[in-house]
Amino acid sequence: MKKPTSTDNRRLINRASISLFYVGILLLWQFVTAILETPNYILPSPYAIWLELIDSFPLLLMHARITVIEVLAGFSIALFLSVFLSIAMDRYQYIKELLYPMMVITQTVPIMAIAPLMMIWFGFGLTPKIIVVVLVCFFPIAVSLTEGLSSVDPELIDLMKTMDASESQIFLKCKLPASMPSFFAGLRIAATYSVMGAVVSEWVGAQEGLGIFMTRVMKSYRTPALFAVIIFIIAITLIFVAVIDAIGRKAMPWTNERRSLR
């Protein structure tokens, strides 16, 4: 089974060339900053960023912990709310007509406008940040699940009705599984938004968190530290997306088995 084939080889070569490409960019960056002798506060070299990353790692970790708490809390609340509301909207057309416009409107208001408002209402603690994360996550999850639930071929539902399926059987055995690919696509988007939402709301005012750390280092022109924060944010987001993808593959085994047995 594990014998390497020509497609396996090609994939290996592809992977190698892709990593080579990114290593090349980093080397070029290092090279340019060395030649031009750019000051660190304008464009630090990758090496300088690396040193900063190691240096402030404990500090970054402390701030990241707060941000991750906000992200997970907000994401979970949004997940719970949107699943509940999507199912209600799918079941009752009236609820959909009632709530859908509001969902779209909340989405058009920029986070930068909501975040200060939340701070005025709820203070400097975690609550206003979690609310912002809920607001940015709710829409992509709710929309993707709603669309997923209504994506089922109506003929399949007709067929189930001829087999005397009840409404709840149609929902559980047909609509819900059919909505999974769309649902997980929405979760993925929400995961990236959630980190962004948390960081932006921390900018406005916080005691701890990657966002407030970011504004502090910017004000003191510690640009290498700024890059270190960005790397942290990227890492957190990627890990979050990877976890969701892993759960998605577990939940939808049929999407992995594209290979034909014909």
Partner: peptide, 8 residues
Amino acid sequence: KDLLMPWR
């Protein structure tokens, strides 16, 4: 259409 459920 065969209308088989792709997830089953």
